[in-house]
Amino acid sequence: MNTALKNIRRTPFQALAAVFVVSITLFVVGIFSLVTLASSTILLNFETKPQIIAYLKDGHTTDQVAGLISNLTSTQGVKNAVYISKQDALEIYKKSVGNDPILLGTVTDWGIVTADILPASVEITASDPKSFSTIASILEKTEIVSQTPQGKKEIDFPQDVITELTKWTNAIRTAGLVLIIALTMVCVLTIVIIISMRISSRRIEISTLKLLGAQNFYIIKPYITESIIYGLVGALFGWIFCYITLLYSTPFLAPRLGGIISFPVRFEIVLMLLVALLIFGFILSFISSLFAAARFVKRAK
């Protein structure tokens, strides 16, 4: 450890370059991990929501609803079908507005939004998207499903949103992965170059140690330690940058994703990110230095 710290002190700019590159790489890794986590949460949110909602006419009877639900659930590919009454719809609305005092006031204080103005509905979850067309045809034929003034049945198919979202999420993930791979390679090469330079400048010392009977691991230990210090310090800085970015973006993201992701992001998640980045930084620096050191030590007699 002392030798490693001494090496770092002696060449502060090389050390700075290594830490900087590792920090940037792990910052990007951290940000894309958070984006991936968020997009998965958003997708899950959409996927677990009823995929099809059929709004019902006022004045439907319980028997008519029971008949529709029975018809739907007996259809292949339908996971379940749930009746949402007007009162249930009001509760869902209240839940969705969260703590927004104005929107909540429309229900509780001013009585603008009441159960009467909200339609009852049947929410259907399909286990297989292929069953959507069958479900749609059943709903089209059902009397109690309400219609628009143009005569079109009022049925929501959020699947389109999911498909679009999945497409974007995959695109972001792919771009992130490509960027992470590129930055990781830059990071590995930077550490390899720095450690190789360090070892090269101490060639005579290394050959002396070998002649004194040192095992290879004893010789490369300080260089690996040095590299791991770069990896861990870089991971710490990368995490700090991530956390600052997250804190600064919270006021922007909270109103847009508030219903899906809870803001501010729980500190446990941020801590888990730190642990993950430290592990990634450790592995990255360990492998890079091992590669550089093993190559040179093998050459030295």
């Binding site: 005579i204 010392e205 002396t208 070998k210 002649l211 004194l212 009977g213 040192a214 095992q215």
Partner: peptide, 18 residues
């Protein structure tokens, strides 16, 4: 090889002192 070398103290012509 390191084990063999530990059996032999070697004094180098150029000292090889770090």
């Amino acid at each position: 090889i390191p084990l063999i070398r530990r059996k032999i103290g070697f004094i180098f012509q150029d000292y090889k002192i770090i």
